[in-house]
Design a protein around this nucleic acid. Sequence first.
DNA 1: CGGTTTCTTGATTGGGATCAATAGGAGTGG
DNA 2: CCACTCCTATTGATCCCAATCAAGAAACCG
Lengths: 209, 209
Amino acid sequence: MEKIDRLVSQRRRIRKGEHLYRAGSSLAALYAVRAGFLKSCVLHEDGREQVAGFHMMGDLLGMDAISGGLHMSNTVALEDSEICEMPFPLLEQLSREVPSLQQQLHRVMSREIVRDHGVMLLLGSMKAEERLAAFLLNLSQRFAARGYSPTEFNLRMTRAEIGSYLGLKLETVSRAFSSFQDQQLIAVRQRYVRILDLPGLKAMLDSKR
Amino acid sequence: MEKIDRLVSQRRRIRKGEHLYRAGSSLAALYAVRAGFLKSCVLHEDGREQVAGFHMMGDLLGMDAISGGLHMSNTVALEDSEICEMPFPLLEQLSREVPSLQQQLHRVMSREIVRDHGVMLLLGSMKAEERLAAFLLNLSQRFAARGYSPTEFNLRMTRAEIGSYLGLKLETVSRAFSSFQDQQLIAVRQRYVRILDLPGLKAMLDSKR
DNA sequence: CGGTTTCTTGATTGGGATCAATAGGAGTGG
DNA sequence: CCACTCCTATTGATCCCAATCAAGAAACCG
């Protein structure tokens, strides 16, 4: 138990705009978000970059580095954040000694795989407005699960970052926001979003087949 | 050691078209492909389905079920296949006892995450022909790594399945094949593909920015 | 063989990208 | 605190790539 305490005792503060880790740096630890908001970006050889995920309290980061010992993405704070740094060798050792920890680790990695498959589905088969609806609903759910309002929140990312994540251009994201507003589904002013019609938003996903 | 023998002793033959597992079925085991070729498909609530991956010798399947205890995808053999079935509880136990097995498991799950991020990049930022080029190069690499020809192989999947995986319609896939053939990059007749200009194919990926 | 699935190719359409211009906020330094 | 600048967001106009619609051809299978 004291080992587990030691595991989660390493804290780290990241200021807005700073990197938690960069692609190419070696795996030192996995990171649990204690507070704040971050994005991670995967990169193509040619310099293309794409947002692969947005992360908030409770999310675990850095798992892409386990396979090759090197991080394969950049992770940057979108607001001042607090991170719990778990040295990976210690985590591996403890997960051998504590079955429940082992199971937890496996579940978290599996959840990341399932999440990625969901994004693949979104990118491969949804139209622009469906993608944004799915994105907003996902944020809503995650805020709700953390005790925040599911219908009212501030986006921490720009339209361009949302677009990158959703495989759209920022203008398209902006237009989709405006369209939702016209349809009375949401009220949006800059980064502040209020969901007016949650069922209506959900209906956008399955109604369109 | 004999436990590991027991772990990998369970074999299962899957005929072309049969399911290895279905979405909703509970996690019994992870599956290693011994021979053959399979696809796995993720599904949307509304019935939409998308190919999430193609799998061949050496690939490990079923990891999406660890997080919730239920498979989140359908996995189907595209040709007669042989699968090694590893009961998951036994795998967890052994990975506690054998550190190298534990590391192996973590690496494989991490590799799946990295692979998924690559597909997300493809779906989010590439044009049709770039996607097909990336797909063919990926297959080529994987065949090469298994001792088969990297430049000559039979596709086991239909144009529609390739399209589903790449976020394209089957007609677009067919046109891209024809275009590559016109450009002397490949020779293709139905499912038989011969890569004539590997560097040329690679150039399609970074030349276009 | 006949029937069915798969593939190719052509014509047209449409959704999102691109180009462009303006406006709104946020941060900075005087 | 305000003026200035830069970044971010909105909106319009046009274009282009891939989807859709459609028709045949080729391969596979019982």
